[in-house]
Design a protein around this nucleic acid. Structure first.
Lengths: 196, 196, 196, 196
DNA sequence: GATGAATGAGAATTCATTCAT
DNA sequence: TATGAATGAATTCTCATTCAT
């Protein structure tokens, strides 16, 4: 009789250990040995759950962006421009803690950007968020809250790109807390005026 | 007398070869051997011009961002909101060709993001561009072309972050030409309305 | 369960292979690859047992001198001048076979002499032998067999230095068998007369 | 017309530079580049005066031991046991400053010990010193100062070996000044009693 | 299922030597 | 003669992956 193991749970354990190891050592000093140790299993065991280090990394990033999508989508449809701007603000601020993971992300997955499948995975996440924004925009136009000249589809994708730019610069270049707050404030004011 | 060599030129040759090798193989498959071969010199020669692979990489990225800064700064001060928006557009479009380098950039320098010195190098470039935008904004406020509520300092930095976000998504996720054009158009319209 | 290995035994195997490789090729032509081949394992395996080539070398020399110390110390306390001289003779003659290792030793560890830790390791071995001789001398003085003017502490250390000099010259410069025997005979006679 | 260069002088300069470089960096960090720099010439120039690094090293050690021989031989024939012991003492003490070079010597030439030619060079030096001692011993026997049972030939070679042992241990293991003085004193007393 | 010892391809770096100037 | 840029063989060490137990 084989040992009873929750495969899903084990994969999660390992992915969690991978995250911790990546954050602690950076991706390139995170050997399979270290990840195994962090997960409390043997090196060989890793290969029972993930085909290769690459597969593990891909699974890891997929999990990461899934959570991100969920986080944004769960915010529900905005009922007014103010509430929409509010949502954008939350996106910028909610993720602040995660910002520290951004450099680790690039350190970890920078090399994966040469892989089209990898990029498509992330693109897909951003597309979904962009579409979510687009839906919000459409609703708000219907309500007469937004400028009618707007192309909702393009703008949805633009918005998430812009916010991502701000978040990235925050995470990567670590401006001071107050500087960042001014940037958030200023960018939201700009977007609000632009959207009316 | 030993061979007479233009050291500056040789460094440039090597950096150029590095770029080509990075693009061809990706950074992590770009061994010093391959770079040397691409440059048409022996492995050891690389070490006469760069202390290590890391040093070569750093020099490479510094060169890259220097050119970027120069490109943007040379645009001169804007005399009207329209001309400023025009500049931003150029920045988004001028760099389109370079966009193909963005995934290579992350593949190449992703791992370098764990290095504070490296990040500071890039941050410095963006800060300079942000300041350049800030100066433009100040001038345009004086001329009464822009909304007086604006905080020029924060907004300058916000603008480059936002544009960078758009460029990054363009380079990384390769939307179609027409999609991207719509995104540029829409984002500039948004910014213009927001700035007035 | 992974392969079951006697780690101690494996270390010994590797050290033995190192010795053979050193003798065959000389230390500086003894690459880790050659040692691995001699040991019948892969290069990487060496690094499971020794952190670096240097660590392997240090372990090797420590093992060598441990055996030397043991060999001399096991001789037990001398009960008369003659028996002491006899011990010294054994030291000079017992080690004759090992003498062939002396040039290899210098070839191997010459470069290690710049390392204080390394020298201290050897110094410690000789000090212990010196102390052992000192104890013998003290006993023999008590018995009235030796000259009372002797400083036993200094003389113990002197004796091992002198014997080492003779052994070194034997090992390094390979006088003929008969020449060496005469040297041993003459040196022991000299020492005996000097000790009375 | 070729430049007028004193080849001999240039060789000496280079050997001197080699010595300084060896002492400063140890042999294995003394690259031809460093030696050249120390000598104030270009790397290529070294090869005009010495065929290879090995040749340079061999020439260096030959020079070193020639001086050593000269130093000892110039002491002249001893006229009494006391004066002979005095000579030995000088040998032990004169060389004290040079003792610091002993670890460098092994670091430098350790690897050369696998080379028979190299060892023969040194052996030859010691043989000559041994013969010099033998001559002294013969003279002193004739004068009735020494024990008649002595085999002068063997003893000459033994003496230099013993003294070398003491010097080596001094240079390598750096006992304190006072410890060494006691060792010298004790060894000379021992030898004197043994020689009578 | 789990383990971890063994593997060996692969990479960065060094440096004695050469040779065009 | 003198130079020093260029060379490339050689070496140490790493680590993803395999597989006997």
């Amino acid at each position: 009789m084989p040992k009873i193991v929750d495969k899903k749970q084990m994969r999660q354990n390992i992915l969690q250990a991978a995250l911790q190891t990546f954050v602690k050592y950076g991706f390139h000093n995170s050997t399979m040995a270290k990840i195994a140790k962090e997960a409390g299993v043997a090196k060989g065991t890793l290969y029972l759950y993930f085909e290769s280090k690459e597969a593990l990394s891909i699974a890891f990033v997929q999990g990461y962006f899934s959570k991100l999508e969920a986080l944004i989508s769960q915010q529900g449809m905005a009922y007014s421009l103010d509430s929409f701007i509010n949502q954008l603000q939350k996106t910028l601020l909610v993720n602040r803690e995660q910002a520290n993971f951004i450099p680790v992300f690039f350190e970890t997955f920078g090399p994966s950007f040469k892989d089209k499948a990898f990029r498509d995975t992330i693109a897909y996440s951003f597309d979904k968020i962009g579409i979510f924004y687009t839906q919000n925009i459409i609703e708000l136009i219907k309500k007469g809250e937004l400028n009618e000249d707007i192309n909702p589809h393009a703008l949805g994708r633009v918005l998430i790109s812009m916010l991502d730019g701000i978040l990235l610069h925050y995470g990567l270049f670590s401006p001071s807390q107050s500087e960042y707050e001014k940037m958030v404030e200023e960018s939201l004011a700009l977007l609000k005026r632009g959207l009316v």
